[in-house]
Computed example of a mutant assay.
Amino acid sequence: MRNILTTAAAISVIITGVAVAKPSLWSYDKISQGLFDMAVANEIGKRCSSISTRKIKGLSFAQSLFSYAKTKGYSYSEVKAFIEDDKEKAKLRARVVPYLKSEGVNINSPETFCPLGQREIKKNSQIGVLLKG
């Protein structure tokens, strides 16, 4: 009888643990899109000599994403571990590179980043807001 109670308690703990497990930060559109926008802006700022990133705006935007994650129950350490994780970086890159290519960017030609950056700035998109040029 004791083994049955112990097993039942263990199953209860496992089920409870699974029920409260947090979803990936990618599952939140605001975070997923925000990280994407920041990554695209960063690539443009690094590669186009006539456009740079707005560092204060970028920091403010990153803080807003962190604050949102915090409302979803994530700690600073969890968010930091997520954004520094190589697998998560690869997932983001797997979204960014096809987007850049679809917008006429040749990854090996820095000058092709500039027209995209100018379009984003002109549209006043979130990517454009993170850039100046």
Results as ranks from 00 to 15, higher is better:
117 G>N: 00
34 G>F: 04
46 K>E: 00
80 K>V: 11
132 K>L: 04
78 E>L: 05
101 K>E: 15
69 A>F: 01
62 A>T: 09
86 D>P: 11
97 V>Y: 09
82 F>Q: 08
19 A>P: 04
95 R>D: 09
121 I>G: 06
45 G>P: 00
82 F>C: 05
36 F>C: 07
127 I>L: 07
103 E>L: 00
98 P>F: 08
91 K>I: 05
53 T>E: 10
107 I>Q: 06
112 T>H: 02
125 S>H: 08
46 K>G: 01
93 R>V: 13
51 I>W: 02
71 T>M: 06
1 M>E: 12
90 A>H: 03
108 N>Q: 05
42 N>G: 08
114 C>H: 04
127 I>M: 04
88 E>D: 12
83 I>G: 12
45 G>N: 00
72 K>M: 13
20 V>Q: 10
24 S>M: 12
13 V>A: 13
116 L>W: 06
79 V>Q: 02
91 K>A: 13
7 T>C: 10
115 P>C: 10
55 K>M: 11
12 S>Y: 07
110 P>F: 05
18 V>Q: 09
77 S>I: 09
39 A>R: 07
32 S>V: 03
21 A>L: 14
58 G>V: 03
7 T>R: 09
58 G>S: 08
110 P>I: 02
20 V>C: 10
129 V>T: 11
7 T>S: 12
32 S>D: 07
26 W>I: 10
28 Y>G: 03
97 V>H: 04
29 D>S: 12
81 A>W: 03
23 P>W: 09
18 V>H: 07
43 E>L: 03
34 G>L: 06
74 Y>C: 03
14 I>A: 15
57 K>P: 01
113 F>P: 00
21 A>H: 14
49 S>Y: 05
47 R>E: 01
34 G>K: 04
51 I>G: 00
101 K>H: 12
13 V>Q: 07
11 I>D: 05
106 N>Y: 06
107 I>R: 05
52 S>Y: 00
67 S>L: 15
48 C>P: 00
18 V>K: 09
25 L>C: 00
93 R>L: 14
85 D>Y: 14
4 I>M: 09
73 G>D: 04
95 R>K: 15
55 K>H: 10
106 N>M: 05
124 N>I: 07
124 N>C: 09
42 N>Y: 04
117 G>V: 01
62 A>N: 11
108 N>G: 05
89 K>G: 04
87 K>L: 13
82 F>T: 09
32 S>P: 00
92 L>A: 05
40 V>H: 02
35 L>S: 01
